[in-house]
């Protein structure tokens, strides 16, 4: 019985860690992979999603719908930001970092001025279950499933839809895509909106498990960055999966055996090692290897 409860505990923690990493990084990695831009304001997109979720929930809207509204709101905000700011910084990693960092400050400080230190948090739905001594939240497992469904959905979107094929072509060679009649600036705007929408949706989902304030996004931003950098931008979906599975595993093991702090440290150490060996991320490294094997 003890072993079973240990294994269940470990798996639960692993699923929970994966969900957190995947949800915080999914929107960011789309934008990075497609446009070579790191959106430092990604955490604020999650904050927007969380705020809309909370306001909608207390306006009497069903929670599920409130979270979806959070995603839509952040998606629209992202498309406006893309048009006004990001558009000028495509392919310029450093300038885009500074510009989006400024945006991040404006949005979080703006939220502080308008809404104050904290807004009402939304109760976690679904209750809990116990295995052995320990109790687990159904909602956390639900979030894990949603995160996996989001990754699968993203894969299908890029694989099977017209928009997805054009987006991948634009990502690889925008000049050629344009010469084939693709409206690449529209593809960029939609992709950016998709990335911030998923960020807002993730923010809404996670808002049901924590307190919500102007700096809510900053809790998730660091691990989102690590996940994206480790995953790399060559293949969005495989990079994201490889990254969350490996980082999640090491973090879970250390968290389980020691404490949360050492869990974070272990994850950072692994990220350092991976980046040292594969400077542009796992997916890029895999792609180069495949090319090399073929050329032999």
């Amino acid at each position: 019985m003890e072993t079973i409860s240990f294994i269940v505990g470990l798996l639960y923690q692993y699923a929970d860690t994966i969900a957190l990493l995947a949800l915080s990084a999914i929107g960011l990695i789309i934008i990075f992979g497609m446009m070579g831009v790191i959106n430092m304001a990604h955490g604020e997109m999650m904050m927007i999603g969380a705020y809309i979720t909370s306001f909608a929930h207390y306006a009497g809207i069903p929670t599920a719908l409130a979270v979806i509204l959070g995603g839509i709101g952040a998606g629209l905000a992202g498309m406006i930001i893309e048009r006004l700011v990001i558009r000028r910084f495509y392919g310029q990693l450093l300038s885009s970092l500074v510009a989006t960092w400024g945006l991040s400050l404006i949005l979080s400080q703006g939220a502080l001025l308008v809404f104050g230190q904290l807004i009402q948090s939304v109760p976690t739905p679904f209750g809990s279950f116990t295995v052995g001594e320990l109790s687990y939240s159904y909602y956390r497992m639900f979030i894990f499933l949603v995160a996996m469904a989001m990754i699968a959905g993203l894969w299908a979107l890029f694989r099977f839809t017209r928009f997805g094929v054009r987006a991948r072509a634009t990502m690889e060679n925008p000049r050629m895509a344009r010469a084939l009649g693709v409206d690449t600036s529209r593809v960029y705007a939609l992709t950016f909106g998709l990335g911030t929408m998923l960020g807002g949706f993730a923010g809404g989902l996670l808002a049901l498990t924590s307190t919500i304030g102007p700096f809510y996004g900053m809790t998730y931003t660091p691990q989102a960055f690590i996940t994206v950098v480790v995953g790399g931008g060559a293949e969005i979906v495989t990079g994201l999966l490889a990254s969350v599975l490996s980082l999640g595993a090491i973090k879970t093991i250390f968290m389980n055996q020691t404490n949360i702090l050492l869990g974070h440290v272990a994850m950072l150490v692994l990220a350092f090692v991976i980046i040292r060996l594969m400077p542009s991320g796992i997916s890029d490294w895999v792609e180069r290897r495949q090319v090399r094997v073929r050329e032999r």
Binding site: V165, R168, E172, E235, E287
Partner: peptide, 9 residues
């Protein structure tokens, strides 16, 4: 587009 399949190209 080398990352796309022949059909997608």
């Amino acid at each position: 587009f080398s990352r796309l399949s022949v059909e997608e190209n």
